[in-house]
């Protein structure tokens, strides 16, 4: 039963991701991306991590994608440019994509991920569904403290960078 749901969510997620790049209207692309993120959130729930699922919804769908949508509305992208670029590269990209897909399917069919995931077991003691937030918090501030702190610098850089690249043009005009 769980497997059925996994395949349902996974298939829709991949289809939505394909739609993001194939749909002509950019607004539809954004909507397809929202659908894709929704499915990923569902996958997190299936993995017994409701907190990550909710965070995915709040942050990606709730905050980031809505800004994306606004940006697309404001940009007024011309559709003609969009079409030209497809026809130019489709004849190369399509065969390459198909070969890649066949390779992935072949590899996944023959190999398998059989890793004993020790860390998950260690976390599992903490992890009954209600406590997944606690478990994530615990590893985030102990085991993954260092990458966590560096990520905060990455956010600062993105923040300052966005200001630098947008505000500067006003000064010069």
């Amino acid at each position: 039963m769980e497997l059925l749901f996994f395949f349902l969510f996974a298939t829709v997620a991949v289809l939505a991701a394909v739609m993001v790049v194939t749909v002509r209207n950019p607004v539809h692309s954004v909507l397809a991306l929202i659908l894709c993120f929704f499915q990923v959130a569902c996958l997190f729930v299936l993995l017994r991590s409701p907190f990550l699922g909710i965070a995915q919804l709040f942050i990606y769908v709730g905050a980031i994608m809505i800004f994306f949508l606004f940006a697309v509305f404001l940009l007024d992208i011309k559709r003609t440019i969009h079409q030209e670029r497809y026809s130019r590269w489709a004849s190369f990209a399509l065969p390459a994509g198909i070969i890649m897909l066949v390779e992935i399917v072949l590899l996944l069919g023959r190999g398998k991920f059989g890793a004993p995931v020790q860390e998950q077991e260690a976390v599992a003691s903490l992890l009954n569904l209600g406590k997944s937030t606690e478990a994530i918090g615990a590893v985030l501030f102990t085991k993954y403290l260092y990458p966590f702190e560096i990520i905060s610098v990455v956010l600062l850089v993105a923040f300052v960078g966005a200001v630098v690249l947008t505000v500067k043009s006003k000064q010069e005009d």
Partner: peptide
Amino acid sequence: LMAIYVGLELMSIS
């Protein structure tokens, strides 16, 4: 790999 990737992104975004 986690620390390496985070460092790589910090470098790239800058």
